[in-house]
Amino acid sequence: MTGLIRSEIRKVFTTNLWWALLIPVAVLSLGSGWMGTGFGSINQIEAELGRPLPLGLLTMSMSTNFSTIFAGLLGALAIAGEHRNKSITTTYLTADSRGAVLAAKLLTYTGLGLLYGVVNVAAGTIGALLGAGTNGLGELADWFSVGGAGLLAMVLWTLLGVGFGAVVASPVVAVMVLLIYKFVFEFIVTSFLLTSDPSGVSAYLPGTAGSGIVGNLAVPVFVRAVSGTNEQMVPQDVFDVLHFFFGGSYGHPWWLSLLTFAGYTAVFVLAGWLVSGRRDVT
């Protein structure tokens, strides 16, 4: 297994995809952290309130929830890409089993997901520091929890991608479906459910669950910081608007989002294992 993991690591770092997809992650996180905390009027609001606003946590949540798609695409191309350039044949001929190939890829891409997560958190933090100094990031414990949740979200999205790519075995299908689902389909569904979702279904959709891992931590932290002792008096509409932009759903715990999304990831990985194990490679 160590040999297969070494092989996968070499495959990743002898081609350009890993950094080509990492650049937008870093740029987005840095940009949103900087822009989102550096508005001129924020200083005046903070002066009125008498306390700093941890906007950096919100922007980190937003950039994480946007950047996870790049991690997902990287993961999706792990196996689908090999089908495209037909190196999958060689890969299967040089491994003990197809399951071993998938396992080696999952372990390798866990590391890559962590790398993406670290770059995302670091760039988002640097951006917030540039925009608002240490005031933009709130308490250290809050920063750690939001950043840590960002790492988890990034890793899970990467692994979901690996499983999905193993199911479809076509990079075009994998990329299109992931992008259209995340940015079109679920956006429409959640927009519709925003006004009429009595049973709270939308929190369990893959995209919302994924963004809830970070969003359900960052949004309540932010509201608490803004409202101080008056937290109970903040209307749900405020939360809904914040969750809509920064991820998550009102009153939904972050760990439930984590479990939900981990469930989706497990389903795709299992499906990928079953499908790729039986597929005829021609």
């Binding site: 890969t91 491994a95 021609t282």
Partner: peptide
């Protein structure tokens, strides 16, 4: 095995291709 429908990543060099699979073996 050398099969017809077997190919390589277009930008990976020949040596790196072999290093990837040497590790796997």
């Amino acid at each position: 095995a050398v099969l017809e429908a077997q190919s390589f990543h277009p930008t990976r060099t020949a040596r790196n291709h072999l290093r990837c699979y040497a590790a796997a073996m």
